[in-house]
Design a binder for these strands. Structure first.
Length: 867
DNA sequence: TGACTCACG
DNA sequence: ACGTACGTGAGTCAG
């Protein structure tokens, strides 16, 4: 926990002045207060090692207490001449220590200390108050301690709650009552006449507070009773005067009080003038010790420039806050340092093709600066992606987790520094020291992390995958994100209107049928309507009640016409909320939406798309498919060109399994589902009906997913027995596939993982589980991952090549989207033919498999027409 | 925040 | 006997 040291400057200055003999330098200047103060400061810094420090001073002005009691501090003598002449120099010394002072018009140091200690302790710091005044004991709490000068200038007593109670037998807050009763000569607080420390302690112990005492004076007797009763008002006033104000209206940024190295040169110069030779030698010793450890590694871009002249590998870790890069930490052979960002143009310094930038999630950073027009041509390496390759099933690749796992480095969690949700701090409120520490340790560990990860990657033979696919893909995805997909708002609006009209009618019908109004979006209320009101049969249960999903509703259609309307309502609401209401507000000034593509999320190696998800735009149903009419080219008269791999997963399966029949089918460019139907149903291809083909298609899907009779039976709504027959027939005809599936499951059981064509690896610990479900799940993953993952490998390779080819040829057309087996190019009208040729030749030839890869190209003025 | 539902390959 | 098809992301409700 951070420690905030706050010093009562006036109090310590007086203490030093009175405790030391009258020292003078050769110029005849009095120096004892400065000397003593400096001694105390050095000692405190060394012993307490605070993270933050501030020194409070009284401000010469009438304080609020004078307004209440004109005699307040009336007996105090004015400051002696010999001390006055030291004040300004002392403040120079403090300044050279790089310590900030706090003075506020109208308030005493006490009140500043009371307020600052409250703020600091409330923000979770430990506070240590140093003063010569016992009054401060009232500020002691669980995380506030007070150090009080005892004798001379070096001896101090430290008080926590327990120590206060042990010594004075009252709580810190009762200290105020104590002073209210006994008064204080030095502050001229009157108190109650004839009540001294002894009596005051007795009374506070017995009654708890002055207020309670005054309500119970009947329990007192003799002189004490008389005195208290006659001076009730005085007691209350005294208490108020003795109470340290803890809510002084100050606007304070605790970060500004982070401990910094003192300015050795300035301090030495001052001490020389003051002739504090012993302190000068202390100073030098200390500064050597602390310099390395406590160096405040905050630099600017001039420093970055110097570093870049010396090193060709640089680690970078940015702090992106509210979409802006607020700061960056760098690390290189010279150590690590932190730079606040005021001008993105400074990043142009990194534009150097000899430079290798190591980062963790570099795309975030590159996208961010790209929006400001800055493109870097340096080489890059990304430790997040490396970690993902080593194990793509992790739930996240936060830097703190990765460093802990691979380097056993403990890094504070960034959420603890910045805060989360409604506790998120404003940038200025973030503890700068923690942030700098966090970022510098992140950056300074990246290079070591990279080495470690690289050794594992080489061991697993994933170096090619990393260097030829995943790393180059960063720039491709960055470009896709920054470029965006252009939408036609009018198309969205007109579909929206159409949906509104339809749903208005449907909602009325449903309410009429129910006889009451309810929220159709609520599964709970909908199931009450369906299963209680209409008494329809509840087919499926969920954890929380009866299911109302599509499968259930479809079966309920024959029972009541309203069910059809409910289904339609659901579909329309989904379209409107997700694809229209969800998209319009995120369009930029050029009518584009910018998705974020995630490279480290899908365990199979696929990329995913978020905010918005452009990989699930409707296509299966005609009405929803019309949404795609809104996805247009950014160019006047430009086209959307779509290039999709035909049956890529089954082709991959043919390649991996080397199944003769499957290979033959693809070599002959057959209708694959038709062929499967003729095999499974043991008829000639001419005899295959559309229903048979539909079922065979489901069987093929099942094979890719890791087949089970249960899953197939559910999908086709046939008996498990029948499903099992299909599967048996399939495996009988496609023996190569059967062998492959058996062998991949066996491999996974023995090795604990499976791999793809490019050696991408996924661990499957579930495969040896004793739990049947877990184990079956593992087996299906073992079957599906090499297929889905290899397809992902292939299209990723194509993306890199298509992107580079468009770039090298200086074409205006852009790769803007990937949907697992499909690439979308926003095509300039002059480049339609070249783009189509380029796509087809690159994608079909990106890798040589045992079957050909076939790419279908579509084009149109929008995505709908590009099919 | 988790559960449900549904959009895609 | 067991009881899920593989991989994702987003909107909505309800507690």
């Amino acid at each position: 926990m951070s420690k905030f040291l706050i010093i009562d400057g006036n109090s310590l200055m007086y203490r030093a002045y009175f405790a030391l003999p009258d020292l003078m330098n050769s110029e005849g200047m009095h120096t004892n207060a400065i000397y003593g103060f400096s001694m105390m400061l050095l000692k405190l810094l060394e012993e307490e090692k605070p993270d933050y420090i501030a020194i409070a001073f009284d401000k010469k002005a009438s304080t609020f207490r004078h307004k209440e009691y004109s005699a307040y501090k009336g007996t105090r003598q004015s400051m002696p001449e010999e001390l006055i002449e030291q004040v300004d120099i002392l403040k120079d010394v403090i300044n050279a220590f790089n310590i900030k002072t706090i003075e506020i018009e109208g308030f005493e140091a006490d009140d500043i200390i009371g307020t600052v200690s409250k703020i600091a302790s409330e923000s979770g710091m430990d506070v240590l108050i140093v003063t010569g005044d016992r009054d401060a004991l009232q500020l002691v709490s669980a995380n506030v301690k007070v150090k009080i000068c005892k004798k001379g200038i070096t001896q101090m007593d430290e008080y926590d709650e327990k120590a206060v109670f042990e010594k004075y037998e009252v709580t810190p807050l009762q200290f105020i009552d104590l002073k209210g009763l006994m008064g204080d000569k030095s502050d001229n607080i009157p108190g109650v006449p004839n009540i001294g420390e002894k009596t005051a302690i007795k009374l506070v112990k017995e009654f708890g507070s002055i207020e309670n005492l005054l309500m119970n004076t009947d329990k007192l007797k003799g002189k004490i009773k008389e005195n208290v009763e006659n001076n009730a008002e005085l007691a209350v006033l005294s208490k108020r005067l003795a109470t340290i104000e803890r809510n002084v209206p100050i606007d304070i940024d605790l970060n500004e009080y982070a401990v910094k190295n003192y300015d050795v040169n300035k301090l030495t110069e001052l001490f020389e003038k003051l002739e504090f030779s012993s302190l000068i030698s202390d100073l030098k010793d200390d500064s050597r010790d602390t310099k390395d450890i406590k160096e405040w590694p905050v630099r600017d871009f001039t420093y970055v420039k110097n570093v870049l002249g010396k090193f060709d590998v640089l680690s970078l870790y940015p702090f992106i806050y509210d979409g802006k890069i607020k700061a960056v930490s760098f690390a290189c052979g010279d150590g690590s340092f932190f730079v606040e960002i005021d001008d993105y143009d400074n990043f142009k310094l990194l534009n150097n093709d000899k430079l290798t930038l190591i980062g963790h999630d570099l795309k975030d950073f590159l996208v961010n600066i790209s929006y400001c027009g800055i493109e870097l041509n340096c080489k890059i390496l990304d430790t997040a992606i490396m970690t993902y390759l080593l194990n793509p099933s992790e739930s996240n690749y936060d830097i703190s987790r990765v460093l802990k796992k691979y380097l056993k480095e403990d890094l504070q969690n960034i959420d603890d520094i910045v805060g989360k949700g409604r506790n998120k701090k404003s940038y200025d409120d973030i503890d700068k020291k923690l942030l700098v520490d966090y970022m510098c340790s992140a950056a300074s560990n990246l290079s070591k992390l990279k080495d470690k990860l690289m050794s594992f990657i080489k061991e697993m033979e994933m170096e090619d995958l990393l260097k030829n696919v995943e790393i180059p893909l960063i720039e491709v995805l960055k470009s896709m994100e920054v470029y965006g997909f252009t939408l036609d708002k009018d198309v969205l609006r007109s579909i929206s209107k159409e949906i509104d009209e339809k749903t208005d009618k449907i909602v009325k019908d449903i309410y009429d049928a129910a006889g009451y109004e309810f929220n159709i979006n609520s599964t709970k209320q909908l199931s009450e309507f369906l299963f209680d009101k209409l008494n329809l049969p509840a087919i499926k249960k969920t954890k929380t009640g009866y299911s109302t999903d599509m499968e259930v509703l479809a079966e309920l259609i024959p029972y009541n016409d309203i069910v059809g309307e409910i289904i339609e309502y659901r579909q329309l609401m989904k379209l409107k909320s997700t694809y229209i209401d969800g998209f319009i507000p995120i369009m930029d000034e050029n009518n584009r939406v910018h998705s974020t593509f995630k490279q480290t999320v899908a365990a199979t190696g696929r990329i995913s798309s978020t905010e918005p998800n452009l990989q699930n735009i409707p296509v299966r149903e005609e009405f929803g498919r019309r949404i795609r009419k809104a996805f247009v080219s950014s160019y006047e008269d430009g086209l959307i060109i779509s290039a999709d791999y035909s049956q890529i997963e089954l082709r991959v399966l043919a390649h991996l399994s080397e199944d003769e029949k499957l290979i033959e089918s693809f070599l002959n460019n057959e209708d694959i589902h038709l062929r499967t139907a003729s095999e499974v149903f043991k008829v000639s291809k001419e005899e295959v009906t559309s229903e048979m083909r539909r079922r065979a298609k489901a069987v093929n899907f099942g094979i890719v997913y890791g087949i089970s009779d249960y899953g197939l039976s559910k999908d086709l709504k046939i008996s498990r027995k029948e499903a099992k027959e299909y599967i048996d027939n399939y495996f009988d005809r496609y023996k190569g596939v059967k062998n492959y599936i058996d062998s991949i499951v066996k491999f996974a059981k023995e090795n604990g993982y499976v791999t793809t064509i490019l050696n991408r690896r996924r661990y499957i610990p579930e495969i040896n589980s004793k739990n049947f479900n877990q184990r079956s799940f593992g087996e299906r993953m073992a079957m599906n991952t090499p297929i889905q993952g290899s397809a992902a490998d292939i299209i990723k390779m194509s993306m890199v090549k298509v992107y580079n080819e468009l770039k090298e040829r200086g074409l205006k057309s852009r790769l803007i989207l990937q949907v697992h087996d499909e690439l979308i190019i926003d095509t300039h009208p002059d480049e339609v033919e070249i783009v189509k040729e380029l796509l087809k030749s690159i994608m079909e030839n990106i890798i040589k498999l045992k079957v050909p890869l076939v790419v279908d190209i579509g084009q149109g003025k929008n995505w709908y027409d590009a099919k």
